[in-house]
């Protein structure tokens, strides 16, 4: 799990995922894979099996939500825009890391003694402070267009993992675990870019690959707090991987849904269904690639995604790898019958 923590800590807002890609490539360097990077930056890792036909495609996105510096003010503070979806109400007072220089700073908030009213701070009124007293000082260290992410350091807490980017570095971690194993069929892992800004990376990456079955692996929403019993918690922590029957953009393949359920029940692997249909996943594009393939999304529940820190369960992560591998073994046998090997 140490690698999962490293993944979460790496800098990779949508559009600037190179460091995450490099980290994954390094981790998989001994796993006899061939690597291709597409022009947008998605990393495609292919394991060529003895079986010659199309195999299984797995996708997880490398990018995380973050910020982009939009203006440097005379007093050295920075205005910024949000990349991806972040509730403006989690912004004030949080520490951030900016740009290639890894400049640290904080999103400013006026002292409680001087601020009036209860309205939430608007994102456009908030500024970042990097310890620069004027425009010149700030410009030496950051530039307009630099990206930033929350500065959270990942850690374990009890049996759980806390970190800033489980959506979807935990999916990336699951993929690396699967890709390290031996397979007789072709297995393609796609580590995509720009998912948080409209599912962009997966669309181009899929042009470079072929497959018969697809799995998108996500860190998905969980919100099981007692204050809002009326709101569906979406998923629960520690109750196993979540199967998505439907999200905003796709309906999970019925046959893969059934297969996952059967494998889980037979292997006594806990599983649950994701209970809300909000949020789109890469499943849509896996399903609609060329003539289409059977595809579904399997998720690790994460509390508080798109905030400075999320929490997920180590057991859920392990069970996701287990359920995915066992299901893929059945598909492997099926594909070998058809295509040999």
């Amino acid at each position: 799990m140490k690698f999962a923590l490293e993944l979460s800590d790496e800098f990779g807002p949508s559009g600037q995922e190179e460091r995450v890609a490099a980290l994954i490539k390094k981790e998989l360097s001994g796993a006899s894979l061939s690597f291709v990077s597409d022009p947008l930056g998605s990393l495609i890792a292919e394991k060529i099996g003895r079986s010659k036909g199309p195999g299984i495609i797995l996708s997880a996105h490398m990018d995380e939500v973050g910020f982009m510096i939009s203006h440097i003010h005379e007093d050295g503070t920075l205005s910024f825009r949000i990349i991806g979806g972040i509730d403006k109400r989690v912004l004030p007072g949080k520490t951030v890391v900016i740009g290639d220089g890894r400049v640290k700073g904080v999103i400013m908030v006026p002292p409680v003694h001087l601020s009036k009213g209860d309205d939430p701070y608007e994102a456009e009124d908030l500024r970042m402070f990097i310890g620069a007293g004027c425009l010149e000082e700030a410009s030496e260290r950051v530039g307009v267009g630099d990206c930033a992410v929350f500065a959270t350091k990942a850690c374990r807490t009890g049996e759980r993992l806390m970190g800033k980017a489980w959506d979807d570095r935990i999916g990336c971690f699951v993929l690396t675990e699967i890709l390290k194993k031996n397979w007789d069929i072709n297995i393609t892992g796609i580590f995509t870019v720009q998912e948080e800004v409209g599912l962009r990376g997966i669309q181009t990456a899929l042009h470079h690959v072929k497959g018969e079955f697809g799995f998108a692996v996500e860190g998905t929403t969980s919100y099981e707090i007692p204050a809002e019993p009326e709101v569906s918690p979406s998923t629960w922590l520690s109750k196993g991987p979540a199967i998505t029957a439907m999200d905003r953009a796709s309906i999970g393949s019925p046959s893969l849904k059934k297969l996952l359920e059967e494998v889980a029940k037979k292997g006594n692997i806990p599983f649950q269904y994701k209970k809300t249909a909000t949020g789109g996943t890469e499943t849509k594009f896996l399903q609609q690639n060329r003539t289409g393939m059977q595809a579904i999304c399997l998720s690790v529940p994460v509390r508080y995604i798109h905030s400075p820190a999320g929490i997920c369960s180590e057991d859920d992560v392990k069970n996701t790898v287990l359920l995915l591998e066992k299901t893929m073994r059945l598909l492997e046998a099926k594909l070998k019958k058809v295509y040999g090997g």
Binding site: S250, I251, Q287, Q288, R290, T291
Partner: peptide, 15 residues
């Protein structure tokens, strides 16, 4: 799936 994502037309049309 026309009402949902257009999956059917997308894939059968591609084929």
């Amino acid at each position: 799936q026309e009402e949902f994502s257009g999956l059917g037309a997308q894939t059968s049309g591609y084929a």
